[in-house]
Design a protein around this nucleic acid. Structure first.
Lengths: 211, 211
DNA sequence: TGCAACATACCATACGGTCGGTATTTATCA
DNA sequence: TGATAAATACCGACCGTATGGTATGTTGCA
């Protein structure tokens, strides 16, 4: 419920500015190492505003995970990989898109909720669950295309569309871990190449897919 | 250089006890959220001993990552997956072994250095690099078998043994992230099933491998 | 007039780290 | 061999700061 005023047009945006600051700072330093004061400074907001908007640092964590889920789902919904008419092509375009957006600084393309989940899975169930909903919710957006591709091409096998969708997220998240540990984004990209190869294998397509 | 005495036989083990405590506590709470005092209490050691052994909390982090690298490499060197005479079978046995040891509490089977790397990749290059060496060093232990299997079976393709070895670690690390986020170890196991299927595909083996 | 949205000063505690001191082992040398 | 010096391993009280959180006041709109 932000409310801008005439004298200070920035007023009311404190919540969103804090969520954006959390997204940027926490992705870089982790949740525990990020101080509330630091977020306030980064968002140019006072501590009073912080604790007015979020009752606690934990609540900010939950809100940040939900904010992440909202913004990323909007981002991926608008992404160009949905364009192909063939569902398998859409899936492969998704993988290519995920690979393409791995660029620049590590903290810019890695995943907020994946990082937070690793840190707080035991100490803060609320944050953990919000992270889980974000990751698994995103995985769920891939299921329909996988199932459609499977039906269309008469693919059988002892795997489910849901599990393959989650597997893509496993590889993306794991790629981020390797990229951070090795300080090299290429480590994340190369695993997406393996994922693409795996998917082509599953659907018996070794070359380019034609509609 | 620990040195036990007659009066206190526990003496000298402070360093190792601290490293073991770090392994257990940091895996559960993360590095930043783990206080030095807490490690001392958990290891039944005084703060003086801590800062005598490790000049700083950061140095403890580096030592913990190196300790992890040493203990895990000994663990995997002694593991039964090396038994098969066929290299491809050894690789598949490795994947099966990684799947088998995913049991019990999340903090018991997840990876210390993967967790730490995510947290400190930007704030502590020393810890990050130690984590990177542990993960990539472990990946390197798989390369020889992958190359042997490839040679033996005349497999070609636009992928390298090194990259496939790293890909296995991507899937393991990513599986841990999903397992934590979803609070369900099965999420890690199911991705290892996909990895097994992928490897079989790569080597044109769809059923059991016979020597 | 009431209430949401701040702002500011303040607080108790927890944190990483320091420091002077002691006990025990090891190296040195007459 | 025995006295002694040097070094290692450890103890525990203390320190300055940073931290999450609170209490109280102010502003501006409905």
């Amino acid at each position: 419920m932000p409310r801008p005023t005439k004298q200070s047009p920035e007023r009311g945006s404190a919540r969103i500015r804090l969520l954006e600051a959390a997204r940027d700072v926490v992705r870089t330093k982790g949740f525990a190492a990020t101080a509330v004061d630091e977020l306030c400074k980064s968002a140019d907001v006072t501590k009073g505003a912080f604790f007015h908007q979020f009752g606690s640092k934990d609540a900010l964590g939950v809100a940040a995970a939900e904010f992440w889920a909202e913004t990323t789902s909007a981002f991926f919904a608008a992404a160009p990989y949905h364009a192909p008419s063939d569902p398998l092509e859409r899936i492969l375009a998704y993988v290519a898109f995920r690979k393409a957006i791995i660029a620049g600084d590590l903290a810019e393309f890695t995943c907020l909720v994946g990082t937070m989940a690793q840190e707080v899975f035991a100490s803060s169930p609320a944050i953990r669950d919000a992270c889980g909903r974000s990751i698994l919710g995103h995985a769920a957006t891939l299921v329909a295309d996988i199932e459609a591709a499977r039906r269309e091409r008469g693919i059988t096998g002892d795997w489910t569309a849901e599990s393959l969708a989650r597997h893509t997220q496993t590889i993306i998240q794991g790629g981020f871990v390797l990229a951070k540990a090795g300080n090299d984004p290429e480590l994340a990209r190369e695993s997406l190449d393996h994922l693409e190869r795996y998917i082509r294998h599953l659907f018996h397509v070794t070359e380019e897919v034609e509609t």
